[in-house]
Design a protein around this nucleic acid. Structure first.
Lengths: 206, 206, 206, 206
DNA sequence: AATGAATGAGGATTCATTCAT
DNA sequence: TATGAATGAATCCTCATTCAT
């Protein structure tokens, strides 16, 4: 079935792109990893660039959180919302670490401009929603007068930093080479606790 | 003079690598940008890989901060030290934003293993010093019992996130396309203030 | 058909390598001669080195004579066997003179060590069989107590010397430039007669 | 002193050319081996090709034997002369084995046509003298009616075959890798004895 | 729908050579 | 006289892509 194979190729692409980068991955290599014919990639996706786009489009759906709904939610206060956001982000990032590495790379690099802007667009969407929540908390005197945008950068940046490289993460936390931080439940909780506490300290009045 | 030209090539390399990535930059392109003969790169550096190494080695000296000395300093308390670290980091990162983008790319990608480890090594050095300071603050009951390592990740991650991409940064802060956040003094202060306040909130007892 | 093209490339390679040597032949030149795309050589063979190996492997089969069987043969005496060997060698060398020039070059040069050893291996195999025959002839008092190894060197060396260069061969035999000694039946017989008589004189008692 | 340095470069060239061939040796490599500046080779010799010519011209003098005088000599009979020739050749070839390998390569390859012809010329000179001696022996009924030219090919070919490659020579004679046949006196005598006996058997009536 | 064969453009690198000093 | 710096041309090879089947 074509859909399966397409997904199969996309999965292989995420794995390779995250390790070697887009330009560092050849279609040959990719076809070998996905165990499909070399010509299949162009046959299905048209080109290497279009495969990248398809990959992002395919995976981005996993990311689309409930942040918009959350913003509108009347039953939760802003601190609760921030907690939910932390949980959601950490959950999502840790369950697709390779895809997020690819996105990070694409943000750093402006080679494929269209894609670069596409990826920035994805993030900018969330920026608005979350800074709005923080601003609302400030207006309601629940939060201190913090810098909402940089606070959001801190949230995303912390997760990205941890996600950046398995080995870097292990160096940071003093674990050995073989430890996989992204599948470890303890580590996930540790990140969530850190971020929740950090935001609590930073945001809450008193 | 050879030294000038070498540096000239390195500067061009940083610019291109930060925009297009290492694999995304061809030596032809690089030579054109540096306005030198195509063969000069190999003449001076031996290979594209070695150019990369030379670039890191050349620029890394700018990064070697006073963090080690700071750790030993007896005249400052731990909060002061954290303030100094924030100032130092922001200063350094903002004055070499392109170089730091290259390092970020290299951390994300494990293609050139040796370089990957080299870059991780650079960061891991600081990890130890800074977490030590935090831990000391905790022992002295100046700081709360925070997660020292993730707190360091937050510090670095925030700066990296901001540095990641000019356009991303402008989207985040609501500035227009032409604003250059990395040379704006106001923006620098804003980052420093945010980080100082963040750490104060997170670290200090009370 | 792939096989035809591969063989076509190999044939062109033999021709050029024999004239210009391995390093003296560029893939561009080779592709032009074989009238195939420049990239085909690497497509089919992987690299210039591997093309060389493939060429040797492909052609070496033509060389694998009946020498081993001959050694075991009970119906022929040792002089008859030497006659057969002379006929076989001359026949084989003269029908693939260019390939033999390539092998001679590779023996002279130890640049590509693996290939060098491979080619030496081919010859060393025959060395053993033929010296064994000579030694047996000596034990049976059919032959004089000659130096079997150097006698073999004489046999091979004579043919190689003649094969070395068409023009050298014509200088030696006083023919003009246009004469092709390798396709001339008279010349073949002349070589065979010389070698048979030489060995008869050298080996036979009386 | 310029002459010393020139000779020094030529010596390095012979060594490298004999191992790796002319095209397989780069000027960089050569300069490194001779421990002179890279530009010296072109400075002294003009080009790589001219260095080759200079090398041949310089070394060829060592080769110019007394063969012409020998032919004219009235005090020796033809068998004695052939003995002298064998001794002379073996002596000369074994004392400059690397140079002879270079010449052999050049004979095999017709890339640098001028040089190719030059080298052939060197050999063709001797061809005439020696075949004349053999022919005279035949006329004087001292020798059988052999093929003078192919007999000469046998003489030269045998030595060339032995000289072709140290490792091939050791395979032939059953010696181990470390044995250097070209400096071993026993081996030299063995070659001389073989050739003298071979020619005696082949040439002498009765 | 799927693929093995084929290709032109471009990749990094090395080459022999030249030039300014 | 001698040499370090520099270079244009050519090297082998790999790339993404296309095409015939």
């Amino acid at each position: 079935m074509s859909l399966d194979k397409k997904e199969h190729i996309i999965d292989a692409a995420i794995e390779l792109f995250s390790e070697k980068g887009f330009e560092g991955t050849s279609i040959r290599e990719l076809a070998a990893k996905a165990d499909v014919n070399l010509a299949m990639v162009n046959y299905y996706f048209g080109s290497k660039d279009k495969l990248f786009e398809a990959m992002v489009e395919h995976k981005v759906s996993f990311m689309r959180g409930r942040i918009e709904e959350l913003e509108q939610d009347k039953t939760l206060n802003e601190l609760d919302k921030m907690d939910r956001i932390v949980e959601g982000y950490v959950e999502r990032f840790l369950s697709h670490p390779q895809f997020h590495k690819v996105l990070q790379q694409e943000m750093l690099v402006s080679q494929r401009e269209e894609m670069h802007n596409r990826v920035i667009g994805i993030f900018s969407q969330n920026t608005h929603n979350i800074t709005s929540i923080i601003e609302k908390g400030i207006r309601k005197k629940l939060f201190k007068k913090v810098d909402p945008q940089l606070t959001f950068a801190t949230l995303i940046g912390t997760i990205n930093q941890i996600l950046m490289s398995r080995s870097l993460c292990n160096v940071l936390t003093g674990k050995n080479e073989n430890f996989d931080p992204y599948t470890d439940e303890h580590f996930k909780k540790r990140i969530i606790n850190h971020l929740k506490q950090l935001l609590r300290d930073h945001l809450l009045l008193h």
